[in-house]
Design a protein around this nucleic acid. Structure first.
Lengths: 144, 144
DNA sequence: TTACATGCAAATTGTTTGCAACTCA
DNA sequence: TGAGTTGCAAACAATTTGCATGTAA
């Protein structure tokens, strides 16, 4: 892949954040460093970079397409209150393999993988859990 | 939710198929029974029906939005050759719960659920597995 | 009768493409 | 130099919205 200032910039923007950005977000960031950059360039490069495996392209469960600078095997957890995506490099391998085997038996075909992009754990992050507890305390006071 | 001929038709189309249709597919089917129906009506009703939980809205890993008449807890498996989605009502509960617990420990937050829409197992369906084997046999012959 | 639903067309959003100018190797 | 890349604008696809009309309760 040929070098270009734009491609390099886009690659670094995605690699140096952990927000799992959308193309639009990358475009906004890129404009800060290079105001004349076009959105088509951003799309072309995000696609090129993820096709060659330098970036990962993930489909979030709401259907929006996001990019991820970390292409290693890892999983995402989304907070059901604030929506933030968290990374985790490895989930307990044994439990994961066991699920894969159970699924193979149940489906009657060999499950080769559980697609990374589609693996999402769902719960509440510590900050939101705390906030929610506070809210419930306030409600409790009102009730008295 | 108010009754209408269109809403009823759309609901039945989705409920009576297991192809996990896109909005476009539902529109094509609906036109067969009601040629004057508009695509906006299809979208509005698919959204309304899935918001009230009468249908499930699922995001397939390629990012396309699909609907599913079965709103019970179940999982999908996609064949990596032909792309077909298969249903399975229950995967081994124990292995699933164990994964959930392992993930909770690893993330340091309670995993409440693994989102259904995002749970996809990936492999090859029996027909495609057979086809692939045949293809490999032919290649084998050529090599001799 | 009135709140809600429809069909149509226009608007919106997210993404891709054609093309002439430019840039990296 | 020549293949590959860019910025711009136009094209596209999927989905939503505005509005006048129609329908269910």
């Amino acid at each position: 892949m040929t070098y270009s200032r734009q491609r390099n910039l886009i690659f670094n923007i995605v690699r140096n954040t952990d927000v799992h950005p959308t193309a639009e977000w990358v475009y906004e960031q890129a404009k800060l460093a290079m105001p004349t950059i076009g959105i088509a360039t951003v799309y072309r490069n995000l696609n090129a970079l993820s096709q060659t495996g330098l970036l990962a392209r993930i489909v979030s469960p709401d259907g929006t397409i996001r990019f991820d600078g970390s292409t290693e095997e890892h999983y995402h957890m989304q907070c059901r209150k604030c929506g933030q995506l968290f990374d985790l490099s490895v989930v307990d391998r044994e439990a994961f393999d066991e699920l894969k085997e159970a699924a193979s038996r149940a489906f009657g075909m060999e499950v080769e993988n559980i697609v990374l992009a589609a693996t999402l754990f769902y719960g509440m992050c510590p900050r939101c859990a705390e906030e929610k507890e506070e809210e419930e305390n306030h409600e409790g006071l009102k009730r008295n």
